[in-house]
Design a protein around this nucleic acid. Structure first.
Ligand SMILES: [Zn+2]
Ligand SMILES: [Zn+2]
Ligand SMILES: [Zn+2]
Ligand SMILES: [Zn+2]
Lengths: 149, 149
DNA sequence: ACGATATTGAAAACGGATTTCAACTTATAG
DNA sequence: CTATAAGTTGAAATCCGTTTTCAATATCGT
């Protein structure tokens, strides 16, 4: 398995793109972040240490990561793009807590196989899939839940 | 099973909302449309027969349908909200063709059960879920696929 | 019919993603 | 080490679907 840094530099070379200090700074920060941050959240984190880097650059660079396979773009229906490191991470799906926003990961090989079966019976070629379970995580439903309003 | 019209009128009554001609027109058109139309697509259809109804009213009314259980809101990652009639339709998940945009429906009881198992092992209470398989439908991969570029 | 309340449609506002553009940086060639 | 071509940057502007605003209008209980 290639390292993310290598993979990114290879991608830049292949596409005749340039290796800039901003890109390396963002990559290094990205690899250290907790997963499933939105562009905005990540940008705010990054800005604490690197106030000079603009939002547009962060956005463009995260998209580069997705293109070259380092990152996966996620969308949990809150209207924000989220990213997580994908290189070196097993495929997984998500449990999204609608109360506290926590995102848990799971992997179920039986479900994956059944998806393939479903696709076959419809003569459909799967390129990608998304499976998310929305609800209350353990912490949010064991505690008393005073309505937010 | 209550009829959609009844259910909507009940909901309006319960919430002290008013029964207007626009709402009834939109409901009747919605029940006749093919599924998975975006607000915009639906509005453009509706406008052919009812040019007087504004986009905002259509939008607000579709949200009412979702609130009262007549409609499901869907989001297939193209940045548009889509709606389909849910009352009287079995739960189903979707196959989304990334080439022609066609949306097929499927239902797999084993997958549904495995989702429940996954949630249980994480002590997670499912409120909702989404499962979509993205790829090429039968028509799009049997034909020669000249690259779009 | 009256008055209180809700709805309507056009337009404006909103929010996140994306693009624009002039200044700047990088890579490559001489 | 320049020079030059080409790509990048950050701020601001733009895009685009969604949602809200608001004055005019419609509904509904009395
Ligand atoms: Zn999966
Ligand atoms: Zn994840
Ligand atoms: Zn399902
Ligand atoms: Zn459907």
């Amino acid at each position: 398995m290639k390292k993310p840094e290598e993979q990114f530099l290879d991608y830049l070379a292949r596409k005749r793109l340039k290796n800039t200090s901003q890109r390396m700074t963002i990559l290094s920060a990205f690899l250290r972040q907790k997963a499933h941050l939105s562009t905005e959240e990540f940008y705010l984190q990054l800005r604490k240490e690197h106030p000079g880097i603009g939002y547009a650059t962060v956005h463009r660079t995260l998209k580069l990561f997705a293109e070259c396979g380092i990152a996966s773009e996620r969308n949990f229906g809150d209207g924000q793009m989220r990213f997580e490191v994908s290189l070196g991470n097993e495929h997984h799906d998500h449990l999204v807590c609608t109360s506290c926003g926590q995102i848990l990961e799971f992997e179920n090989q039986q479900i994956e196989q059944l998806q393939i079966d479903v696709a076959r019976t419809h003569n459909f070629i799967i390129e990608d899939h998304r499976l998310e379970l929305y609800g209350l995580c353990s912490a949010c439903h064991t505690t008393e839940q005073p309505p937010v309003s």
